[in-house]
Design a protein around this nucleic acid. Structure first.
Length: 468
RNA sequence: GGGGCAGUAGGGUAGUCUGGUCCAUCCUCGCGGCUUUGGGAGCCGUGGACGGCAGUUCGAAUCUGCCCUGCCCCA
């Protein structure tokens, strides 16, 4: 018998082992913080990102900018540099010849894109401009790296960049982007919360930053999306101007927003269980696995092939015709997260039925072949709904209203603490210090209360947590 | 940022303290074969490993140093 997966309670072990066993990514690449996508993992990634693409393609255009950024461009925006300079990889030689102008491997692409926006944007009719790209970026992480979560090469960075005539229009875009991200995570059945990051934690060079966070099984939060209002900060640095209808030259207002392969990590961590992956049907590389139950003199294979033919045009379906025994196949495909299993054996064939088993609940049901199509459609829909519902219940139960820092300190051991804050940086940092958690950010919903440090009355409510 | 611990076949391990018994143990896995198949099949045959560099030594998986990599705890 094959060794079991570590229990999900031991989240780190479970997560690392699962990534390798199910062939999502291989962390054994011989350089720290870099990993290899296996075919199965890449297929999962592709399906997740095609949802993201389809949402963006409604009103964004996809582009592709270079990986390398000249040092002089990279160094232009002083706040931005301060935020990134310690984690930039530099290309300094061409062969053995030192480069006149060193080139940065993009840690993010603002400084690659905005010099071009200066050329592309001339007039108010060029606005709004909304572009995105899905690329790799590099950050020299010195802390512990963790596959898909903290890496040196972000392989799947979706970054969108927009330019608008006014600050208010850019702010509308921030809201639109957050709505788009919420829809994306709803499709992945990932519960999440949106907050405004405190000033000391905003994107370097932004006016303000919004963030999307979810909760991991160990109670730490994972930032799975960010949306930044850049104001005219970069526009002034890169001289990105447009001529307004009155003939005045004005700086554009910009936003940028990103999602990385952390969204794949979130799907794995939020839905997975002790038996392995549990995947929402829309993104599962294999949605249905057909398992023949062979028995002396009675070959179920023919029946399985007929079912396969019946389903294959609509669903991603695989017939496991290997020589293993049925039990071994069940474990194997459960590990891979296949949402629905179809078993066909002698008993089923006699009755013109098949047996359906759900991955999320292990619920087992026999269905007449004549009603199979409808039953599958129902079940796949129910699986998505159930995954989202049970994840949301777990998520909600781990957000605790707190009045005191002691309560907050307890709450962040298992999840997030909701607590009042006056808005002063000094008090905020003190709250972080006293609880050992971070202030994730401010919620849009306000509530009358008082700051746990200075006691001042306030409407602001923040979330605190331990964060990845 | 600070502190621990660990690297032995594709995966997991024994051996390391006390150097020689180890051309390295067991499980899993791969390959070939026969019998099997409603929740991880059995037997037979076979394949595959001491993270890297340097040092100590007659002799290093084992001791020392450095490097690389990974994990855990604290801030």
């Amino acid at each position: 018998m094959r060794e079991r997966l570590p229990r999900k309670e031991k989240f780190s072990e479970w997560y690392n082992e699962l990534l390798l066993r199910t062939e999502i990514v291989d962390v054994r690449y011989p350089s720290k913080g870099l990993c290899v996508w296996y075919p199965f993992g890449f297929s999962l990634r592709r399906r997740i990102y095609s949802i993201l693409r389809s949402l963006l393609d409604v009103d964004h255009q996809e582009v592709l900018f270079p990986l390398l950024i000249p040092e002089n461009e990279f160094m232009k925006e002083s706040e931005h540099i301060k935020g990134f300079e310690e984690e930039v990889y530099w290309v300094t030689k061409g062969g053995s010849t030192p480069l006149e102008m060193p080139l940065a491997l993009r840690p993010t692409s603002e400084t690659a894109i905005y010099p071009m926006l200066q050329l592309w944007i001339r007039s108010h009719v060029d606005l709004p401009l909304k572009i995105y790209q899905i690329v790799n970026t590099f950050r020299y992480e010195t802390k512990h790296t963790r596959p898909l979560i903290r890496v040196r090469e972000i392989t799947s960075f979706k970054e969108a960049h927009t330019a608008h005539a006014t600050w208010a229009e850019a702010e509308e875009q921030v809201k639109a982007a957050l709505k788009l991200y919420s829809e994306f995570f709803r499709r992945l059945a990932i519960p999440h919360v949106i907050t405004k990051r405190p000033d000391w934690d905003k994107f370097p060079g932004a006016d303000y930053s919004m963030a999307v966070d979810t909760l991991m099984p160990d109670g730490k939060t994972l930032q799975i999306g960010t949306v930044h209002h850049l104001g005219t900060n970069f526009a002034e640095t890169f001289d990105v101007r447009y001529e307004d209808p009155e003939g005045e030259q004005r700086y554009v207002n910009q936003t940028c927003y990103g999602i990385s392969e952390r969204c794949v990590a979130a799907v794995i961590a939020v839905h997975g269980d002790d038996r392995g992956l549990v995947l929402p049907p829309e993104i599962a590389p294999t949605q249905i696995i057909i398992i023949p139950i062979v028995s002396k003199g009675k070959d179920a294979l023919g029946a399985c092939k007929r079912i396969l033919d019946m389903l294959k045009d609509v669903y991603r379906v695989v017939l496991d015709n290997s020589q293993e025994r049925p039990g071994a196949k069940y474990y194997k495909w459960e590990m891979k997260g296949v949402p629905l299993r179809v078993e066909i054996g002698p008993r089923d064939m006699e009755r013109g039925e098949v047996t359906l088993v759900r991955r999320d609940t292990f619920e087992r049901e026999t269905v007449a072949i004549s009603k199979l199509n409808d039953a599958i459609e129902d079940k796949l829909g129910a699986i998505h709904a159930n995954l989202y519902e049970r994840a949301r219940q777990s998520f909600d139960s781990r957000i605790v209203d707190c009045k005191t820092l002691d309560e907050a300190k307890t709450a962040i051991r298992k999840g997030m603490a909701k607590i009042s804050w006056c808005g002063e940086e000094e008090c905020g940092l003190c709250m972080e210090d006293r609880t050992g958690g971070d202030i994730l950010g401010e919620l849009a919903k306000t509530k009358r209360g008082e700051c746990p440090i200075c006691g001042k009355k306030t409407d602001k409510v923040v979330l605190m947590a331990r964060a990845y």
